[in-house]
Design a protein around this nucleic acid. Structure first.
Lengths: 347, 347
DNA sequence: TTTCTCCGGTGAAACGTTACAATACGCCGT
DNA sequence: ACGGCGTATTGTAACGTTTCACCGGAGAAA
């Protein structure tokens, strides 16, 4: 392994000079251009690779950002990860990831792991049903910039990024409205999720705006006792029992939408001809569903890179001893029209 | 931040002694039990956290394993990651992941990134269509234990883990055979993939064993020119045009199976009543497909933990200056019967 | 008593950087 | 000739560990 000392000897300059040049920081400006090129040449000739451990030990900076995901096998998390990594790459920071494995009790372990690795900031991807807010706040007050993706924490000293659920469902309903649907069924998400309420507000608000009537008998809600998929199937069957006449169904999310389509197919109805269906999330599989699902895309990659941007800025601020305000961002989702929606049949 | 020196002063012992005790290595045995408990007590009282950078700098060991995935948003990769992480957790190693983003040309960058972080070993999750074998071999010969998951490299100094494709398709065909199917269509995978050939061998071998006749007109092959999904749809339509009488279809993988189901549905056929369909992979979405897909599970988590086990052993061997043989492991897949297969209709 | 061995522990030198203060030196004005 | 100043460069002390060689002393063997 070749060290900075080797470069110094080979180039005839001191270790200090080499260090300054190779770091290309502000102090490198004080070194003459001739010396700089000379040192660079020697460094690349020898194939010098700085030792991160020595560097971090001395400079007290790890060049590392910690990411906590609630489930690495969940496509929601990995798309965000992709965004984070892409944003961080050019800035020289490296993201390291710990996985909660959907087990809330692992949170402290994950945080400790990251702190042991001396991460300079933390991005947490929030599970919709739980979030260890206190621990995140503890981080933030310890001076570690923290941002949470997927949950709004307006009153806490933690930055956050969320999707604009209301705007999403508005687009959904507008789409169906423009296709001429008026008898629309809804499967709402579980009450515990803030997302559910926001999405419902978008529905109500758009319906009110255009004078669309929502039949309370066509609105059911996921209780979340058992698998969301089987519950989706059951609720759809219940809707069919109550008022078989609806021509469209808005599901809380893609999984529920898939369940609904399954139930509709089993009852002999064809999607979208007899009934249009719309989901929310745009899971990777949704484009290949039978039929391909019309749904709302959450711009997860953007959310990730936005998160990375925020912590990066916060870290930079900390280094320069500036303070930086907590940020709360909302990203606009996008309706993706595929093959589960079509104009309402005029009967 | 509290250091080992603080613990030494507070406990009245030397830094050396504290270090030996806290590392709980073989040299700790030389220290008397009384001293040991005393030091531990002080360390926990002060909340001592060793500085990984200092430790790694001195000991030349990073306690880190590098993982290269070909696409972090691919469920295939993340399930393997889960297995790796779970295996590594108790042993104190930490996996750091780099993402190829399905771009072969990024490989060297990813390797360099990991080498910069001084990983002690590398696990590479191979993309089915490409693999930078040379670079992996280069790693292995540089003394960095390397294992590749998803590709067999029998003649190289790199360990490997693969699924037993042949055993998988044998189970598939046996399942259909036992359900009474004899007119079976096949969509083979692209020739370039070794997986394709192995899976086909399983089919042929089982058919030969039980005397099942395979109609060459019912065998089509993915060329891989455009999206695998749309090609699956087209091939299924072609099969229906040629010999509409088949009662079952074996697809190369889940995505193709979904495409086939889609094409069958569009042609008015009901799955599984009119035609059974089997996939391969067990993608996370497959259980929620319409209908839920009968498929072959690849035991990805096991593959991951197996990979972790192999590199861990290799690292341990390197530390103790033993040499350890390259290992090639095959894991047995498992048929998951869901709702796309049923007994053949006797016409 | 002397020498040897073992036990329990220690001092000091690394590991490869970066940061701070200091230095050498050429040049200007006086 | 001399002080002063700015520029380009350097010596040295950290950063927090681990490791290696060593040491004092108590008991056993000679």
């Amino acid at each position: 392994m070749i060290t900075i000392r080797d470069v110094a000897e080979e180039s005839g300059f001191s270790v200090t000079t080499v260090s300054m040049v190779l770091n290309a920081g502000p102090s490198a400006a004080r070194i003459s251009p001739r010396t700089r090129t000379r040192i660079w040449k020697v460094a690349t000739k020898l194939g010098y690779q700085p030792n991160l451990f020595a560097r971090s030990l001395r400079s007290q900076r790890s060049q590392t950002i910690g990411v906590i995901v609630f489930d690495i096998t969940d496509a929601y998390c990995t798309q965000i990860l992709r965004g984070i990594e892409n944003h961080l790459r050019p800035s020289g920071y490296f993201p390291i990831t710990t996985d909660l494995q959907d087990d809330k009790s692992q949170f402290q372990r994950c945080v400790d792991l990251l702190l042991t690795r001396r991460v300079e900031a933390i991005i947490a991807i929030a599970n919709p049903v739980y979030l260890e807010t206190d621990r995140l706040v503890a981080l933030a007050t310890r001076g570690i910039p923290t941002v949470v993706i997927g949950r709004e924490l307006p009153s806490e000293p933690v930055s956050s990024i969320v999707v604009d659920n209301e705007a999403g469902t508005k687009q959904v309903l507008q789409h169906l409205y423009e296709l001429g649907h008026s008898k629309i069924a809804f499967i709402r998400g579980p009450k515990i999720l803030v997302d559910s309420q926001q999405r419902w507000q978008g529905i109500e608000s758009f319906a009110r705006d255009v004078g669309l009537k929502i039949d309370p008998n066509l609105v059911l809600e996921i209780k979340g006792r058992n698998s969301s998929y089987v519950e989706g199937v059951e609720l759809t069957e219940e809707l069919l029992r109550r008022r078989p006449g609806f021509t469209a169904l808005v599901a809380f999310d893609d999984l529920t939408a898939c369940a609904a389509i399954r139930a509709l197919s089993k009852s002999g109805r064809r999607v979208p001809k007899d009934c249009s269906v719309v989901g929310f999330d745009d899971l990777p599989g949704s484009a290949f569903y039978n039929p391909p699902l019309t749904t709302v895309q959450q711009q997860l990659e953007s959310q990730g890179s936005l998160g990375a941007e925020i912590v990066e800025e916060a870290v930079r601020a900390a280094i320069e001893k500036r303070t930086v305000a907590v940020k709360h961002r909302k990203v606009s989702p996008k309706l993706i029209v595929r093959e589960t929606t079509c104009p309402a049949q005029t009967q």
